[in-house]
Each structure stands twice: as structure tokens, then as C-alpha cells.
Design a protein around this nucleic acid. Structure first.
Lengths: 191, 191
DNA sequence: AGTGTTGGCCAACAAGTGTTGACCAATGGC
DNA sequence: GCCATTGGTCAACACTTGTTGGCCAACACT
């Protein structure tokens, strides 16, 4: 999060820059790529649209900068293979609730090629390596990770994007209880 | 499909009308709502953009007309509650492969309110009534139908929209074998 | 103090959008 | 053969979009 070392000198405009990123995440999450206009983002951030261009080059550049997501998946330590399903589902729910960049990526990924690839990248890199640690045959890790993604993204889609009332009404615990065993099976059941 | 009865007199322009609908479904499925322009749809259909307006009133009207989907879920007869999961997953895969309107609805639903509501309607009306027939407590039918939707839509999302390579590589049989038991459990497991 | 750099706003551009209305050509009933 | 209806094109309107360049004020350094 904070600057660690000599990577970037602090600029006077950092406040504006991060205001733009925050507004961009909100707009992308709420409206998707096409309908999240630079003008609207700039208005939310309280500055002129041309500033967005100066700082991020283009709308694509802004998108790339705004949606840098780390799933923060648990490492090998503290990962009990027998309850990885429930832990994972709970973790994803937390991520989604607190980080609107994930909803933004999902919404944008549905219509925008760059968004789809970014979503692919996040789940491929971070989920597959976890799957490799817990599934019986490491060869199957990509397939099993994809199955997990289908269920987790499906829940995110119906709950945070489509807002199907019954999925919105479910509590965190209920979702974990329902999806946990599914994810558990996708990851650890003999292939 | 075909005209049954005296509902609508056949018009000379029926060929054009259905050409427009076909092109619209393709474009909506491929590009989503905003990027599927009326001009592009008209070009695909080989006519002038203004015809689209004349026949369907507006872009919203075209969208509504193009995406009228019947899931064709099996009725109470021929529905063995013990294998409803696998049957349902197979059925959804067939629907998705042959009907691009479903992919269109999914893509549009991610960014467009009307699309989201339409998707909600389709799954609510058609899936819930099926759930009511097989789940132990009819009171829970909406919740169970929503869980099924989360898994089925999640697979459709990763396979037909995001095109995650491992999900694309799976065969119909593999998907049925993996998702079938999940859907079965969401529908019939004691609550 | 003076000067270069940075942060910011304003006005405009070119392109593309949904939508409209005027106009033409073919059809079909009388 | 005449004429109303239908199927279709063309050109334009009003608007929004991403993007650009010119200009001004505040700062930082010497």
C-alpha cells in the first residue's frame, strides 16, 4: 500500500491521483467499462476530465491502473486441506465485500476484452497455485481452479452484479455452508 | 417458433424482421449492449439503420424483442428427483450451445439494468417452479433455485463469456459429472 | 526576486451514437 | 390503370464520447 523505499517520489498531486482511482473503481464497478465515462469519473473526483488523461494517458490506462487486484489467498501455512473449501469461500466473500475493484473487474470483463483477460490473469495465477497445493493430481490444478472459479464467480455475479434477491438475502454463513462443500469437492475429490 | 393460429398476419417484411433479430442476438452476445450499435446490427442484416427503429421502436425495444428466451425446462413428468442435477446441467449446456440469446442476456445483464432484470425474470420464473417440485421444503425453492443459478451462470460466464481456457476445454460429459452433483445437492439436500 | 516546473481549468475537436423525417419504389386491391 | 399501403434508402439532427492543446496560478528552488 504505502511507498516502500525509493520507488516513487511523493508528488503534490497524489491526492488527486488517488481520488481519480477511487472514483474510477466506483464507476467501473457500478456501470461497466463503456458507461463509466471519463467525464463522470472526473466529476466524482472533483477535477477536470483532462487531468485523467494527463495522469493515466487514456481510458484504457486508467482502467489498468484502477483494477490492480491481489486476491490475498492464504499461503501453504495455515491451510488445512480438509476445510479449504469453506475457508476459501469465506475469504472470497470478504474480498468482494471490501474491494469494489473485484465487482468492477467482473462487470467490465463481461463486455471488455481487456477486462476479461485481467480477470483471467488474476484467477489463473493466484487460484491455480493454490489448487496445486491441495488437489490430488497437480496436473489437474488448472481444471480444478477453473471449476472453483465458475462457482465463486457465479455467486459474485448473481449477488453483486445481477443482485438476484435470494442471493443477496443469504448471509455470509449460509453461503459458506452451501458453497464450501462444493469448492471442497472441486479441489480435493479424486479425479 | 412458427406462427400458431391467427395471432399475427404474415407480412412481406418478415424476412427482414427476423434478419434483424438474428443479427441483434449475435451482436448483443458478442459485444454487450453498449457496443452493439444499431448501425452494426443493420449492416449485418443488410438494411438501413432506420428500419430497425421503424420495426422495433428503439434500441431498448430491439433488445427486448431479441432476447425472449424460454429455457424449456423439463416438466414434472420425466423428472426423476434423484438425477435432476445431471439432467439439468446437461440441459443448460444444450440451451447455451444452441441459443446465443442466452450468452447475450448474460453479457448484457452485467452492465445493463434491463438485461439484468430480464435474466432475473427468466431464471426466477422458470427455475423456481422446477425447484418447488423437487426440493424438500417448497418455502426454500427461491433460495435453492438461486444457488443453482449461481453455479450454472458461473459456468456459462467462465465458459462462454470470459472463455477461461480450462472451462472451454472441458467436455459436456465432464461438466455434467462435475456440476451435476453440485446442482443435485443445492436442490435436494436437506436444509 | 526571478524562473522553471507542476497542478489545474477551459474550450474545442473529430468521431460515433440513437433517432427522425423526407423521399422513392414496389406491391396489391379495386 | 389508379391509388393507398408497405418496404426501404438517404441525409441530417442533437448529443455524447475520448482526447488534445492553450492558458493561468501556485509552488519550489536558487
Amino acid at each position: 500500500m504505502t511507498d516502500a523505499g525509493t520507488t516513487t517520489p511523493p508528488r503534490r498531486s497524489d491526492a488527486t491521483r488517488s481520488a481519480i482511482l477511487t472514483a474510477a473503481r466506483e464507476r467501473f464497478a457500478a456501470d461497466g467499462y463503456e458507461r463509466a465515462t471519463i467525464r463522470a469519473i472526473a466529476r466524482d473526483a472533483g477535477i477536470d476530465p483532462s487531468m485523467v488523461m494527463r495522469y493515466y494517458g487514456s481510458k484504457d490506462g486508467l482502467f489498468a491502473a484502477a483494477l490492480d487486484v491481489d486476491l490475498e489467498l492464504p499461503g501453504p501455512e495455515g491451510l488445512d486441506p480438509r476445510e479449504v473449501g469453506e475457508v476459501l469461500v469465506g475469504h472470497f466473500l470478504d474480498m468482494w465485500e471490501e474491494n469494489e475493484a473485484l465487482t468492477a473487474m467482473l462487470r467490465v470483463g463481461a463486455t471488455n476484452q481487456a477486462g476479461a483477460e485481467r480477470l483471467q490473469g488474476v484467477f489463473r495465477d493466484q487460484l491455480v497455485s493454490l489448487a496445486r497445493q491441495v488437489c490430488p493430481d497437480p496436473e489437474q490444478a488448472p481444471t480444478r481452479a477453473a471449476l472453483v472459479a465458475s462457482q465463486v464467480l457465479g455467486m459474485a455475479l448473481t449477488r453483486y452484479v445481477l443482485r438476484l434477491p435470494p442471493t443477496v438475502a443469504l448471509s455470509r454463513e449460509e453461503i459458506v455452508a452451501w458453497l464450501g462443500p462444493t469448492v471442497q469437492r472441486y479441489l480435493t475429490a479424486p479425479g
